[in-house]
Simulated assay, not measured.
Amino acid sequence: MVNKVLSAATETEQLFLRFLVGKSKVYKEEDYNDGLNEQDSDANQQNGWHQRTLLSVEKERRMRVLEEKKLQQRREAVFVRDFQQLLLTTINEKLENTQCVLCDHLQMHQQCVDLLTALIAKETRYSVLAELLDRNPYVRNHVIGLVSSQNFMALLGRQKRIVHDTQTAVGMIGTNGLRYLIPALMFKHCINIYNHHNPLFTKKLWRYQLTLGQACTSLMLEAGYRHPYEGQMLSAMLNFAYTASFHQYLTSFEHVRSRLILEAREQDESMRHGFFHDLKSDLASLQALLITKSDLMMSVTLATPVFSKDFPHLITALTEEVENIDFDSRSVLGQILFKAVYFAKYEQLRAARLFKDEWLASYFKSAHIDKTTFKLLSEQALFRFKPDW
């Protein structure tokens, strides 16, 4: 029975990675709404009666064209193999520079860390929060925009209002609401779901991260944890590896492609030059990259220097998850994160209609989630932001 449980969990984990990078969409387009948003079948076919007999010379020509096509495909397969090897090597070298990754790809500048620390770890006055928000223009502008949203403010039981200064917006939402909102906005910006290269991947990653963070919050509340608003931070920290890898992938892809185009031009290899000139970012190389990072050790490496001082308990829970510590040996937060990860992955696959019903019993037995908790998590639509915990 244990082997069956492990098999189901492993199969689901592999399916989740393929879904994340693949072309499968979440079933309903509405399922991407996070609540924070201010082959032709008629080809002509011939039967044997109408087919004319090919002349021998035409047969030879077709065979020649076919052989040339196969040769071209073999050449291109070599180009792709060499490109992917160089791309992955380049990405891994760049990702070793932790400080650059934190600043360039995760946007964890000091002003961002200061805002999170003041908001989550301390009791801070509205005026100080407003000042810190002004140093983070993207988050500030989004907060002000949400204050004028009837739907968002209704969730807080308040009327919308058109405001222009940060402190008024802070006062209208309140510290507790901002503790849930600002980390979500900050990490959504970090993922950059509006990129032009692979928006489907980033939308799915954000939907997973928001679901994971709010599953953590729900489980924290159930356990009586004092700071349930830390859920979204914990979720983002776990996904640092995927987020940073994706952004480095985009940067390195263009760098390596340009390098190989230049080399082909210098060596007067027109076929090679044309191939790399037309090459577009592909899912196979991105999936290969994410598989190499799926142990998420890089998440611990990136989160530790930023959050270990003010949020050591989050680093502990993150480390327990990444190192796959036995469930019963984990801290309270470590157990919460364990359950939330299982649920969030299930929820993405369920929404995409990829999760088989027969997996449910064995999968959730390994997830340590009882039926009552599972029902509670399922009913809350955790892929959509909740400011009213």
Results as ranks from 00 to 15, higher is better:
S245E: 09
F246V: 01
F246K: 01
H247I: 01
Q248H: 08
L250H: 05
T251D: 13
T251G: 02
S252P: 03
E254N: 13
E254C: 07
E254P: 00
E254I: 01
E254R: 09
V256I: 12
V256E: 03
V256H: 04
V256M: 09
R257D: 08
R257S: 03
S258W: 10
S258C: 08
S258I: 04
S258A: 03
R259P: 00
R259M: 06
L260P: 02
L260N: 02
L260Y: 04
L262E: 11
E263K: 13
E263L: 12
E263V: 11
R265F: 12
R265Y: 13
R265L: 09
R265V: 02
Q267A: 10
Q267Y: 12
Q267P: 05
D268N: 15
E269A: 04
S270V: 11
S270D: 15
M271R: 10
M271E: 15
R272T: 09
H273V: 00
G274F: 09
G274H: 10
F275N: 05
F275H: 04
F275S: 09
F275L: 06
F275V: 06
F275W: 10
F276K: 01
F276A: 00
H277N: 10
D278G: 08
D278I: 00
D278P: 05
D278R: 12
D278L: 07
L279W: 12
K280A: 03
K280R: 11
K280M: 01
K280T: 02
S281W: 01
S281D: 03
D282A: 01
A284T: 12
A284V: 08
S285N: 06
S285A: 13
L286A: 06
L286D: 08
Q287V: 00
Q287H: 12
Q287L: 06
Q287T: 04
A288F: 05
L289G: 03
L289Y: 05
L289H: 05
L290R: 06
L290H: 13
T292Q: 15
T292E: 15
T292I: 05
K293F: 11
S294A: 07
S294G: 01
D295P: 03
L296Y: 15
L296V: 07
M297A: 10
M297C: 10
M297N: 12
M298N: 08
M298Q: 11
S299C: 03
S299A: 03
V300N: 04
T301Y: 07
T301N: 04
L302F: 09
L302V: 06
L302S: 06
A303K: 02
V306R: 07
V306M: 04
F307Q: 07
F307Y: 12
F307A: 00
S308R: 13
S308H: 07
S308Q: 14
K309D: 15
K309I: 02
K309E: 14
K309M: 06
D310R: 09
D310Y: 05
D310I: 00
D310C: 07
